[in-house]
């Protein structure tokens, strides 16, 4: 890294001055001071051209999840049981017939930590089950 990352980290360790909101006139009450301690050192320049990263660094904005679809087939009378797996904003990830022990592979933006499922059948007497699955 050239080499703002390390320099800035060292600066934090010795509590040297400089810009930033925490160094300006405090607006929080004295009796309840708020001290922001970054858990990770921050680079001075955020430009890629000013920095280096390890060759092993990954740049994934998506995560892969392998999961087993819940086996709800026993709860339905209908011969054709369907499942929709979808995000909280309604985008379908998997849509079709549900079979026992069916594996599911999802590839989702990193911030998505759960999905929803609807299970339903072609039998009008059957209910529609909606659940949330935490990934």
């Amino acid at each position: 890294m050239k080499n703002g990352f390390i320099t800035f980290a060292a600066c934090l360790l010795v509590a040297c001055g400089g810009g930033g909101e925490s160094a300006s006139t405090p607006t929080t009450p004295v009796e309840t001071p708020v001290v922001t301690v970054p858990t990770q050192p921050q680079p001075e320049s955020t430009a890629l051209k000013d920095n280096e990263v390890a060759m092993t660094t990954e740049f994934n904005q998506f995560a892969t999840y392998l999961t087993q679809l819940p086996d709800k087939t026993a709860q339905f009378k209908g011969t054709q049981i369907f499942i929709k797996v979808y995000t909280h904003d309604g985008n379908a990830l998997y849509l079709g017939k549900l079979h026992s022990n069916l594996a599911l592979s999802l590839h989702l933006p990193n911030h998505i930590k759960s999905v929803k499922i609807d299970v339903f059948s072609s039998d009008p007497q059957d209910p529609q089950i909606t659940e949330e699955i935490t990934l």
């Binding site: 998506f62 054709q80 369907f82 499942i83 979808y86 995000t87 309604g90 985008n91 379908a92 990830l93 998997y94 849509l95 079709g96 017939k97 079979h99 599911l104 592979s105 590839h107 989702l108 933006p109 072609s122």
Partner: peptide, 27 residues
């Protein structure tokens, strides 16, 4: 087409669609 239930004369259906990243999003 999604979630097709064949009634007659239809053979080209699939059982399910798996969408990446979703049916309404793109990489």
């Amino acid at each position: 087409a999604p979630l097709v239930i064949a009634k007659s004369q239809v053979t080209k259906t699939v059982d399910a669609w798996s969408y990446y990243p979703s049916d309404n999003n793109f990489y």
